[in-house]
């Protein structure tokens, strides 16, 4: 099988997607056991979006997304340990037990969150890009949101200014067809979300989000455009979440057949098939990757279990940078 991508790329895609899948499956189990609380939105099914992005961007590029953030955070380089500990609410979590599932952040990995107000991060992402343009460096920002957020007014205000100011930002709509329980047909007459960019003369593409190759190719073009001061791009990436919107959603608004149809296009299976067809790995080597991922997830759970809760005194920390802020306490 001919492919423009080599063995290394496919093995990376396989391992990172498997890690995201196994991490989220474990997260779902632990949620059922009430080890993880709060709102929790799993990334299962959408892994190719994260994997295809990561091979097209630089480590020092910026990423920001909504509350379905576990997959992108880990793909961006955050450790499963700090992420699992955050899901538990432990002091060793990526935000010290302050953000939880919806608010993963890592300054070191340039992962700007994890945001809980649908669409709010669309403007923030443009702003992060604005700062890099202001300081005249060549970083780009990848800003993710869902098909639900595409119906927010902030998208239009942001698209307009991002084009006006030629910001180095890539807007990625992860269209998984459901805004919580409302299918895209029920939220707009414009079903091709990428066409929203037309109103602002923004280059846009519709991308197969079940394919790492397609995500990578579209992302690479967009990244080059942004890095070479060509301005923003809007990618509508058609993907699918196998689970409900959040852990409390039984997803009765769609059929089992629809879910199974997408599982047939599963990105992990597709990448594995390419690896095996090209004889880039033996079954034993694949098994070794599977085992490594299994261990990594197990270790993250053990780490979270053994970590302490944040100290009660943390209640009044990290609200302000100003450490002497006089809180009202009575």
């Amino acid at each position: 099988m001919q492919t423009p991508f080599g063995k290394e790329t496919y093995l990376y895609w396989y391992e990172i997607m498997l890690l995201l899948r196994r991490f989220e499956e474990k997260t779902g189990q632990l949620y059922g056991m009430q080890k993880i609380r709060g709102f929790c939105h799993l990334y299962i099914g959408q892994e190719a979006v994260a994997a295809g992005t990561m091979t097209a961007i630089r480590d020092d590029d910026n990423m920001i997304t909504a509350y379905r953030d576990h997959g992108l955070a880990i793909a961006k380089g955050m450790s499963p340990k700090e992420c699992m500990a955050e899901l538990y609410g432990k002091a060793t979590g990526c935000t010290k037990g302050k953000g939880g599932s919806m608010h993963f952040f890592s300054k070191e990995k340039r992962f700007f969150g994890g945001h809980g107000i649908v669409g709010g991060q669309i403007g923030l992402g443009a702003g992060i890009a604005f700062a890099d343009m202001y300081h005249n460096n060549d970083r780009v920002t990848v800003c993710y949101f869902g098909d639900g957020a595409a119906r927010q007014g902030l998208l239009h205000e942001t698209f307009n200014m991002a084009m006006l100011w030629n910001l180095p930002v890539i807007f990625v709509c992860e269209n998984n067809y459901y805004a919580m329980g409302t299918s895209i047909e029920r939220t707009s007459k414009t079903l091709d979300i990428y066409r929203l960019a037309d109103a602002y003369d923004m280059p846009a593409d519709s991308v197969d989000g079940m394919s790492c190759e397609e995500v990578h190719k579209a992302m690479e073009r967009a990244v080059r455009r942004a890095r070479e001061k060509g301005g923003p791009t809007f990618l509508e990436v058609k993907t699918y979440r196998y689970r409900g919107h959040s852990m409390s959603d039984p997803a009765k608004y769609r059929t089992k057949e629809e879910v199974e149809e997408y599982k047939d296009k599963d990105p992990i299976n597709q990448v594995l098939k390419t690896i095996m067809d090209n004889k880039w790995a033996t079954e034993a080597e694949i098994e070794a990757i599977n085992e490594k991922v299994r261990q990594e997830v197990e270790e993250s759970v053990q780490f979270a279990e053994e970590s302490p809760w944040p100290d009660d005194s943390e209640l009044y920390k990290d609200i302000y940078v100003d450490e002497n802020y006089p809180y009202i306490t009575d």
Partner: peptide, 14 residues
């Protein structure tokens, strides 16, 4: 809303 969001994002990035 839009320019406030862009400014907030920019303030988080230096």
């Amino acid at each position: 809303l839009g320019f406030a969001a862009i400014a907030v994002g920019a303030s988080s990035n230096g």
